[in-house]
């Protein structure tokens, strides 16, 4: 028996749709990691997960827990804040490191300073 929360029908529909939507968007982002060809192209798709994917799943979770009224929705808001603020920073640092390494090796793909 698969477990699921006890929700009224409207909430169940919202939660189901948003959870599926968020998971599919994250999967598309991760597929981009495989399907695109160069590193600089591959940096773009993983931003799908932390932006829209996370927002969708958090909306589902906010709906679920505010209907159940078991606890306030603080954690979701904090997670959303952390993820959307921190992922761009990590990606920027990583891309800068890649540019630095490519320039050091004299790779032709990256414009020189």
């Amino acid at each position: 028996m698969i477990q699921s929360p006890d929700l009224p029908l409207w909430a169940a529909i919202i939660v189901g749709i948003f959870v599926l939507l968020g998971a599919s968007i994250t999967l598309i982002g991760a597929l981009g990691l495989i399907r695109l060809n160069s590193f600089y192209e591959r940096v773009h798709p993983p931003t799908l997960g932390p932006t829209l994917g996370t927002i969708c799943i958090l909306v589902a979770s906010i709906t679920c827990f505010s209907t159940l009224q078991s606890r306030p929705i603080v954690h979701e808001l904090l997670i959303g804040l952390f993820v959307t603020m921190t992922t761009p920073v990590t990606l920027m640092l990583l891309a800068r490191a890649a540019v630095y390494r490519d320039r050091k090796e004299g790779s032709p793909d990256v414009p020189q300073e």
Binding site: I2, Q3, S4, P5, D6, L7, P8, L9, A12, V15, G16, I17, V19, L20, G22, A23, S24, T26, L27, I57
Partner: peptide, 17 residues
């Protein structure tokens, strides 16, 4: 109420993730 559709949706989402 316990909706089997919801359980299915969440499980499918877990598989996708």
């Amino acid at each position: 109420m316990n909706w089997p559709i919801l359980a299915l949706a969440i499980t499918a989402a877990q598989v996708l993730l």
